[in-house]
Computed example of a mutant assay.
Amino acid sequence: MLCILFNPLQTQIVRSVSVNPWINQAIEEYLLRQISEGQVLLFLWQNKNSVLMGRNQNPWKECRISLLEEENGKLARRISGGGTVYQDEGNLNFAFMTPKKLYNLKRQFDVILQALKDLSIEAQRSGQSDLTIDGFKFSGNAFYLPRGLACHHGTLLIDTDLNRLTRYLQPSTETIKGKGIQSRRSNVMNLNQIRKGLTVETMMEGLKGSFVRIYGGTAQEVQVDENNYGISDLMEKFSSWDWRYGLTPTFEMVLHHDFPWGAFRIDLHIVKGRIDMITIESDELKGPSIQELNLPMGKDPFTKETLIQYFRGVDCFPENSVRDDVLKWIMTRDI
């Protein structure tokens, strides 16, 4: 008699109690590295007042960095591609982690869609990576497929501050040229606009139940934070300037303003998030009207403060009042 042995999936649910995006990114990467054959893991977490961009994006093109930092927000860069999203504690993040041979995008999306259906919310997939209701996006998804492993992660807008989302995710008004992937702008909505009173906790419980029904297994649940795993190196990586800004593809930015005394233009060449070259143009300069600043380029991060420091130290202005006008103008720029 032929005997067929069936090996059930090993399912697990992990929930982070941290709301720090850099910590949660570190936990996510750690968990992905530990995935074993036959295992499917659902990771759930929330972030506080954060902007997360895709691996190959330019933060200066995607969000108002200065405003985010002034309001104690955190900028993060994902390991996956895709676009930039705003997250707060009214948003639920999820990740499906599997060996590549168990990666099944339809099945993973079914977990989410079934959980929503159980809450009397009818939603649809839109394209490869979005979930929508009547054309309004409430979930963006991205994918990371390292050798032998797979991660499908995404967001669920439930009670997110859409005013902050709109304020932070405004493309820069400056002229920027470069190869970074640019986000597609979408009309968004919160799920509690469809189901009044819906909370993140209710949605989270719905996802857990749907995950168990669709994947089976014991789906043992554990709660974790930065102290559960040896992730200090990963936390350092995701919070570092080099990861968040230094991976930005090379780009150029042009700043231009018409002062009462004449026009002034700054051309910036940025490599790995650092100022590589500055050229200025104005009829009010001492010497030629177009000058390349002779500064130690390629070392200093591209920030508003660095730019102000540069212009305080160069001797190219005919008088201090012109320099003061330029410095005041730079201080108003959203860079």
Rank of each mutant, 00 (worst) to 15 (best):
A150S: 11
T248I: 08
G38V: 07
Q87P: 03
L268K: 00
M253Q: 13
L42I: 03
N192D: 11
D242G: 09
N49P: 08
L9R: 07
M204N: 09
D325M: 00
K177M: 12
L293E: 07
L119K: 05
Q57W: 04
R333F: 00
G287H: 03
Q34I: 00
Q124D: 13
V200S: 01
Y30N: 07
R312Q: 15
Y86V: 02
P59D: 03
E201D: 11
Q12E: 15
S172C: 09
V314K: 03
M204R: 11
A76T: 06
S139H: 04
Q34D: 04
D134P: 00
E292T: 15
W241D: 13
Y86P: 05
T98C: 10
G140L: 08
M1C: 14
R15V: 15
G262C: 05
C3V: 10
A219V: 09
M203E: 01
E71I: 01
Q223L: 11
G148D: 09
T132Y: 09
N47M: 03
N56H: 14
A26N: 01
M297T: 14
K74P: 01
G217C: 13
L31Q: 05
L9M: 08
R265V: 14
S210E: 04
L169W: 08
K177N: 12
E29D: 11
T173D: 14
R33V: 05
L92Y: 02
E284Q: 14
S321G: 00
L75N: 02
E122W: 09
P301A: 07
Q124W: 09
I194Y: 05
I121L: 15
A142Q: 10
I278V: 14
N228V: 07
K328D: 01
K48L: 11
S321P: 01
G246I: 00
T332W: 00
D283A: 15
E174G: 08
F311M: 10
R78K: 10
C316S: 07
R164G: 01
I270L: 08
E71T: 14
L9Y: 09
M235R: 10
E284F: 02
L92H: 01
I27R: 00
D134Q: 13
L31H: 07
G148R: 06
G287F: 01
K101S: 12
F96V: 08
T132D: 08
I79F: 14
N104I: 03
V254I: 15
F302A: 04
W60F: 04
V222C: 03
L207Y: 04
M235I: 15
V111T: 05
L67V: 05
S126R: 15
I158F: 01
Q39K: 10
R333Y: 00
R64T: 01
P288F: 04
R55T: 01
R213K: 15
R213W: 09
L5M: 11
G127A: 10
K48Q: 14
I194E: 12
L105V: 15
F94V: 02
T248K: 02
E252Q: 14
M189S: 11
S129W: 06
T132W: 08
L119R: 05
R274C: 13
I308F: 03
A142L: 06
F109C: 11
S282I: 02
Q193T: 10
Q182S: 13
L119I: 10
E284R: 07
E292G: 07
G82N: 05
E37C: 09
